[in-house]
């Protein structure tokens, strides 16, 4: 009687175990499948008509042949400005959190606010820059787009910089200080150098993050159908062109949207892989 009962319980436990394990394998399959499907369609549609024209010709009016050259340039220019402006601020703020105010109340607040900014909706950043820059200047501009991207770069760099500096053993700092190095030298010569690979990784991740950001550019950089290098004017950029072309009813615009999407994804994946390799070297 009890033997039969315990066999029944055992069978039930094994069945339940098998059921849930199958479910979790299916979950993994589902996740990998949907993500493979996305990459597959991206390459299928994006490689379809990809030619060098994409890099040399301007965004066309509907029905005409063209490329994405002006959008690619605009994206590059705004990302470059954003990284150039955001990295020093992020690096210094991250350094403050890890080196000077590690346990202070002020740092707790900065950390909290920074992590909120890190995950806050990017469209809010667009609204913010619109209010403080575009509305004042009276027109959309490449500078405004770059400013919006800067606001996104800063929290990413702050977070990775702090994390990486915290990994540097205190013994290194103490050894440098014992040799008589002032604190600023300890930071610049010892801890920054020890954490360099990690900090570079953070910057790469920040670039990956902003190269696909669309929402903050919608009402800051807007778009420009023509070749323009004037940061004071509306500036073409890949994400906006993808958005505009994909939402249009024209087939050739759809094709260019796919090509742009492929370019962005390849760039983002390449950056993430490089970041990963750098990170691997460190550890």
């Amino acid at each position: 009687m009890t033997a039969a009962r315990s066999r029944r319980i055992r069978r039930w436990r094994m069945a339940r175990n098998g059921f849930f394990l199958v479910l979790s394998v299916m979950a993994a399959g589902l996740g990998l499948l949907s993500l493979t499907l996305i990459l597959y369609s991206l390459f299928y549609h994006g490689l379809h008509g990809l030619s060098s024209k994409v890099f040399t010709e301007m965004t066309p009016p509907p029905g005409m042949d063209g490329g994405l050259a002006n959008a690619i340039f605009g994206s590059f220019a705004m990302s470059a400005v954003a990284v150039a402006a955001g990295t020093p601020i992020g690096l210094l703020a991250g350094t403050y959190l890890a080196e000077y105010g590690r346990y202070s109340r002020f740092s707790f607040l900065v950390r909290f606010v920074n992590d909120i900014l890190l995950s806050a909706p990017s469209i809010i950043v667009g609204l913010f820059i619109y209010e403080v820059m575009v509305a004042r200047m009276g027109h959309f501009s490449g500078w405004a787009g770059a400013a919006a991207l800067t606001v996104i770069v800063i929290p990413v760099v702050v977070r990775t910089t702090e994390n990486m500096l915290l990994l540097v053993p205190n013994g290194l700092r103490e050894a440098a200080a014992a040799l008589g190095a002032p604190r600023v030298a300890v930071i610049k010569v010892v801890t920054w150098r020890a954490a360099r690979a990690g900090i570079v990784t953070g910057v790469l991740l920040a670039i990956a993050r902003i190269s696909g950001e669309t929402a903050p550019l919608l009402f800051t950089a807007l778009n420009n159908q023509f070749w323009s290098t004037d940061m004071n004017q509306p500036l073409a950029n890949l994400p906006y062109v993808i958005y505009q072309f994909a939402m249009s009813p024209y087939d050739d615009w759809h094709r260019l949207a796919w090509e742009g999407a492929l370019l962005i994804t390849v760039a983002v994946l390449a950056l993430s892989i490089i970041a990963r390799i750098l990170e691997g070297k460190r550890s």
């Binding site: 996305i38 696909g212 759809h254 983002v268």
Partner: peptide, 24 residues
């Protein structure tokens, strides 16, 4: 490998999900 794949895919920009959702 699968762990890395999943982490990489977390970095794909949202506009890609949008265009895929709309057209595919």
């Amino acid at each position: 490998l699968i762990g890395i794949a999943i982490e990489l895919l977390a970095g794909i920009p949202s506009i890609i999900y949008g265009i895929w959702g709309l057209f595919v």
